[in-house]
């Protein structure tokens, strides 16, 4: 009869439930405060894309209103020194019961201390890592276990650099962003046929709309090097976005700020970052990633010799030299 005792115990404690009146006032007060904060962040959300693609200046130059926002946000100035932001790409299944999908794209974006260079480092989704509190598992489950903060922790302990914040982008947001920009030119070095839509993406350079880009970045199994190649495609998309945003007008900028599905968790204003990185152009961004499989069971591992060298080069900001030593780790398809 433990069941009856349980019901009785619950019933006895009902009176302890918080009272509705004060609760409601507290909710409204908190929500109002957070809405104000969100408004500020939203205004900077095109600039958050700046973070996503590490695109800096053009937005602030082209949107004078942002300068006013910048004064509002001045206490949240980006710190001096190198900045590390983890970019997380999500592809939630429409029927997924849990709120948290796996993170299929994980990229560490590094802005150098002198703000002259940015580096992207991809982590393959099946990479076996130590997830604090959850043991060894694929890196893409870290998001399921603990959201963006846990992914940041994992990336930080892998690379040995402190992570300043995260930007999480839903695949649906990517489609909206691309469509707002009027499509995206991409170069596909290897043909692939979508296992989702059956569409074939031939070798060559062409313009894709939001649906096309979304379909393309979901493909992994069609490539000889699977997820490793997909990571390269995603980096190519980011860099193409970066080139494109340089040319946008204010109308498009306004539309970009309304895109839903981009979640920014930064301890400073994206606008201040945009200003800090205003000399940075698409050609100053270098992307890296392991070239191919190194399986351990059903997981992947990082090359035990080259990966530590990559992370050491990241810490000392000598990735240009690393690229010369290991050209196969450099992402060249953009």
């Amino acid at each position: 009869m433990i069941e009856d005792e349980l019901r009785a115990s619950f019933a006895r404690h009902e009176f302890q439930a918080p009272r509705v009146g004060p609760l409601r006032r507290a909710i409204d007060r908190l929500a109002a405060r957070r809405r104000r904060r969100r408004l500020l962040l939203r205004t900077g959300s095109a600039a958050a894309l700046v973070v996503v693609a590490l695109i800096a200046v053009p937005l602030t130059i082209r949107a004078p209103s942002m300068h006013t926002q910048e004064t509002l946000l001045s206490p949240l100035e980006a710190p001096a020194g190198p900045l590390n932001v983890v970019l997380i790409g999500l592809d939630p299944y429409p029927d997924q019961a849990t709120d948290r999908p796996r993170a299929d794209t994980i990229i560490l974006a590094h802005l150098t201390a002198d703000r002259q260079r940015a580096y992207l480092i991809s982590f393959e989704r099946d990479l076996a890592v130590d997830i604090p509190g959850f043991g060894t598992d694929k890196i893409n489950t870290a998001y399921v276990d603990g959201g963006a903060p846990l992914v940041a922790t994992v990336v930080s302990s892998l690379t040995g650099v402190p992570v300043n914040g995260t930007v999480t982008v839903n695949l649906s947001a990517l489609a909206q962003i691309v469509d707002t920009l009027g499509g995206l030119p991409l170069c596909q070095p290897v043909a692939v046929t979508s296992i989702h839509t059956g569409r074939t993406f031939p070798v060559g350079c062409y313009q894709l709309d939001g649906a096309g880009v979304t379909d393309l970045v979901r493909q992994r199994l069609g490539y000889p090097t699977g997820g490793y190649f997909r990571d390269r495609v995603v980096q190519g998309v980011l860099i193409s976005l970066l080139r494109k945003v340089v040319l946008i007008d204010i109308g498009q900028l306004a539309a970009l700020t309304r895109v839903d599905g981009v979640d920014i968790d930064l301890p400073f204003s994206p606008v201040s970052l945009a200003l800090a990185a205003k000399d940075l152009g698409a050609d100053d961004v270098l992307g890296f990633g392991q070239p191919s499989f190194d399986p351990v069971g059903t997981n992947e591992r990082l090359d035990p010799e080259v990966a530590p060298e990559l992370f050491a080069a990241l810490r000392s900001e000598t990735l240009d030299d690393f690229a010369v030593r290991h050209p196969d780790w450099l992402v060249t398809n953009h």
Partner: peptide, 28 residues
């Protein structure tokens, strides 16, 4: 919802925080 939070957390104050956080997110 307030009673549900009370049963989940077993604590008046935690229940209050749980309802608040949930409803703020729901409102936004």
């Amino acid at each position: 919802l307030s009673r549900f939070a009370m049963m989940l957390t077993g604590d008046h104050h935690l229940a209050q925080d749980l309802v608040q956080e949930t409803m703020v997110r729901a409102q936004l």
